[in-house]
Simulated assay, not measured.
Amino acid sequence: MQQASDKSVIISEILDPRTKNLLPMLEISDYVLSNELVSMVLAMVAEDRQINDVLEELFAEAGNEMHIRPADLYLWDGEKLSFYEVLLRARQRREIVIGYRLANAEKAVINPPGKNEKRRWSLKDVFVVIAEKK
């Protein structure tokens, strides 16, 4: 973990899109181009007004947030379920599963393909959920 933090340089926000061109020379690992983000959100709302309700809920100070939850909240070790079945179990907890990260994977899978395909889950897997803060 220490090695990763020694090598990573993160800039939280860039306002001028021209600054983005300088980042490769500075070995910057990640950034947020806030003006571009605002433009994308406005385009989403213009295309479908109902998305505004979802965005308001996600970005409100109180209410639902994204969380990483352990698999044992939704299944037993080695249980064979489809993603849809996990989603239904999470729904009983008033949560929405939007993805997962398998125990042996480096990255999470958001909105996975093949949601009907059954797979054997491990208790070391985790799920990405939208839920109220507890």
Score class of each variant (00 low, 15 high):
residue 3 Q to P: 01
residue 4 A to P: 00
residue 4 A to F: 09
residue 5 S to R: 13
residue 7 K to T: 12
residue 7 K to D: 15
residue 8 S to P: 01
residue 8 S to R: 06
residue 8 S to H: 07
residue 9 V to G: 03
residue 10 I to L: 15
residue 13 E to P: 01
residue 13 E to G: 02
residue 16 D to T: 04
residue 16 D to C: 04
residue 17 P to Q: 09
residue 18 R to Q: 10
residue 18 R to P: 00
residue 21 N to C: 03
residue 22 L to W: 01
residue 24 P to W: 06
residue 25 M to C: 01
residue 26 L to I: 05
residue 27 E to F: 12
residue 28 I to F: 07
residue 28 I to S: 04
residue 28 I to T: 15
residue 32 V to Y: 01
residue 33 L to V: 00
residue 34 S to A: 01
residue 35 N to L: 10
residue 35 N to R: 09
residue 36 E to P: 00
residue 37 L to H: 01
residue 38 V to Y: 06
residue 40 M to P: 00
residue 40 M to C: 00
residue 41 V to L: 15
residue 41 V to M: 12
residue 42 L to M: 13
residue 42 L to Q: 11
residue 42 L to E: 13
residue 43 A to H: 09
residue 44 M to W: 09
residue 44 M to P: 00
residue 45 V to W: 10
residue 45 V to C: 10
residue 46 A to H: 13
residue 47 E to T: 11
residue 47 E to C: 06
residue 48 D to M: 09
residue 48 D to I: 05
residue 49 R to N: 11
residue 51 I to Q: 12
residue 53 D to F: 12
residue 53 D to L: 13
residue 53 D to E: 12
residue 55 L to K: 06
residue 55 L to R: 07
residue 55 L to D: 07
residue 55 L to M: 14
residue 57 E to H: 08
residue 58 L to Q: 11
residue 59 F to K: 04
residue 59 F to G: 03
residue 61 E to K: 15
residue 61 E to N: 09
residue 64 N to H: 07
residue 64 N to F: 08
residue 65 E to V: 14
residue 66 M to K: 06
residue 66 M to H: 06
residue 66 M to D: 02
residue 67 H to L: 15
residue 67 H to S: 03
residue 67 H to C: 03
residue 67 H to M: 07
residue 67 H to T: 04
residue 68 I to D: 02
residue 69 R to F: 08
residue 70 P to N: 13
residue 72 D to T: 05
residue 72 D to I: 02
residue 73 L to H: 06
residue 74 Y to E: 05
residue 74 Y to I: 03
residue 74 Y to T: 02
residue 75 L to C: 13
residue 75 L to Q: 03
residue 75 L to H: 07
residue 76 W to L: 12
residue 76 W to S: 12
residue 77 D to F: 00
residue 77 D to Q: 14
residue 81 L to N: 05
residue 81 L to A: 07
residue 83 F to T: 04
residue 83 F to L: 07
residue 83 F to N: 02
residue 83 F to A: 02
residue 85 E to H: 03
residue 86 V to N: 07
residue 87 L to A: 14
residue 87 L to M: 14
residue 88 L to G: 01
residue 94 R to S: 14
residue 94 R to Y: 09
residue 95 E to V: 05
residue 98 I to T: 07
residue 99 G to Q: 08
residue 101 R to E: 05
residue 103 A to M: 00
residue 104 N to A: 13
residue 104 N to I: 09
residue 104 N to C: 04
residue 106 E to P: 01
residue 106 E to T: 12
residue 107 K to A: 11
residue 108 A to C: 12
residue 109 V to R: 07
residue 109 V to M: 11
residue 111 N to M: 14
residue 111 N to L: 14
residue 112 P to R: 07
residue 114 G to L: 11
residue 115 K to F: 06
residue 115 K to C: 09
residue 115 K to I: 15
residue 116 N to K: 13
residue 116 N to I: 09
residue 116 N to P: 03
residue 117 E to Q: 14
residue 118 K to M: 11
residue 120 R to E: 15
residue 120 R to N: 08
residue 121 W to D: 02
residue 124 K to F: 03
residue 124 K to H: 14
residue 125 D to I: 02
residue 125 D to F: 04
residue 125 D to P: 03
residue 125 D to W: 03
residue 125 D to G: 02
residue 126 V to E: 02
residue 127 F to M: 08
residue 127 F to R: 04
residue 128 V to C: 05
residue 128 V to M: 10
residue 129 V to R: 04
residue 129 V to E: 08
residue 130 I to N: 02
residue 130 I to V: 15
residue 131 A to S: 15
residue 133 K to F: 05
residue 134 K to Y: 06
